[in-house]
Design a protein around this nucleic acid. Structure first.
Lengths: 239, 239
DNA sequence: TGTGTTATCTATAGATCCATGGATAACTCA
DNA sequence: TGAGTTATCCATGGATCTATAGATAACACA
């Protein structure tokens, strides 16, 4: 209690925070972390998904592991990585929110690629819940199958975006479709909605994506589809 | 709609996120941003507070400005910096939460320096609100005066930690004291509580600090102290 | 208009980070 | 045990980041 630094938060703390900051300096590491917030993946799958060489991807993952942001699990010859807890996903979400709020470039990219007309009128989670209970809406998960199986909105149909066009005729033009994907920065759902609208279907995007749904403590289904809407009481709508 | 990358969120987005990530690689930049979430400050004050040379601090602030995380304002010869919006503070808070959750080192530092006994039993914001209305508690803001004036809990007394010991006799041993500071990673309030307890006062820390109070949409007073508790209805307790 | 104050810009040497290929390690399964 | 598969470790140029001093710019005020 007698050194001059007693009254200040020590710089040591900020050095620790910078260990985490170090992870999000590199675009590919953010991309990796974003993927890992959707589902666990093998080293090989991560390298392929991000277009990195195996050794490079491994190096990035090691940096994340030193910062304790990812956990690993071994199964046969494969090492599977996953985000180390909800806080990681919340942090990445906060980063995305911040970027969207502060960087005009992000807004522009989003509106250029995912045509921004339908992103302006998104369905809220609360609305989706009640509409699904009423049964007058189809929920569409357009992420890769693997991510759907790792956790999806109960009742949602899995239809990865690249297969949408081939199966358009399965959708009734009278029933509205609500599509969702990885989150506000992901363009899968906006693109799906654009395609659906172009072919005369009623379609909108869900606000945000799966991680936000999970963080709102709403029900999450795992594995292949089972329709379990009725199992959840209205009190589950803690949003 | 015919290039092979159509179905993937473009890497361009992650490059933009990395612009923000770049800010939080460097411990001093995190420290600067943390300070700016408490109150705006002049260039000179920021350099002094972080122990940086003026030119170095300026360089760091420029990097933050390029990432749009800070805004500036000029007054006479001084340039004042401030955090560019609530999202910035939320992001820094998420970083702190993540560090506290994942890095054992952070927990250890916190428990070593601010004796961790009183950090385990903190007062919730809701409890503080009702206790203050009941009038059986003293709220103590132990941050520097400048930060108090930029925004404090209505009814709180400003007493920067370094002056606490000199004014101990002003506190009635019968009335409990609740101290708060910058947030969960700030050690000012825990140290104040330790000092108060050592001298026979009943004292506890508030959970988190001023930024979290603000983000909970609770009332914030500005400038010199005016007791305005009664102005706020119970519905302001949206937490 | 000129002088003083404060902040930013420029240049630079030293440190750190990145991608990559090749070697090594961990582990499975026959 | 040994061959095969997958991930990590190591070494290395090339690029980027950091701190600082000195020069310049922006501005207030007389």
């Amino acid at each position: 209690m007698d050194n001059s630094n007693t009254y200040e938060a020590p710089g040591v703390i900020y050095e620790q925070l910078a260990r985490i900051g170090k992870v999000v300096v590199h675009p590919k590491r953010i991309e990796l972390l974003d993927l890992l917030c959707q589902s666990e993946r093998s080293m090989e799958a991560l390298a392929a998904a991000t277009g990195l060489k195996l050794t490079t991807a491994s190096a990035h993952l090691q940096i994340m592991r030193q910062a304790r942001l990812v956990d690993t699990r071994r199964d046969a010859n494969r090492v599977y990585y996953k985000a180390a807890g909800e806080e990681v996903c919340r942090f990445i979400a906060a980063l995305g929110d911040l970027a969207q709020a502060r960087l005009a470039e992000v807004k522009q990219i989003l509106s250029e690629i995912g045509s921004h007309t339908e992103t302006t009128q998104r369905v809220s989670r609360a609305e989706l819940l009640s509409r699904v209970r009423a049964g007058d809406v189809v929920v569409l998960d357009v992420r890769p199958t693997q991510e759907y199986q790792a956790g999806h909105i109960p009742g949602a149909i899995s239809l990865p975006l690249e297969h949408l066009e081939a199966r358009l005729d399965e959708f009734d033009p009278q029933v509205e479709i609500v599509a969702y994907c990885r989150g506000p920065l992901c363009l899968l759902a906006p693109q799906a909605v654009a395609t659906l609208q172009k072919h005369g279907r009623q379609a909108r995007c869900l606000e945000d994506g799966m991680p936000e749904w999970r963080q709102a403590n709403l029900p999450v289904a795992v594995g292949s589809e089972v329709n379990v809407w009725q199992e959840f009481s209205p009190t589950a709508m803690t949003e």
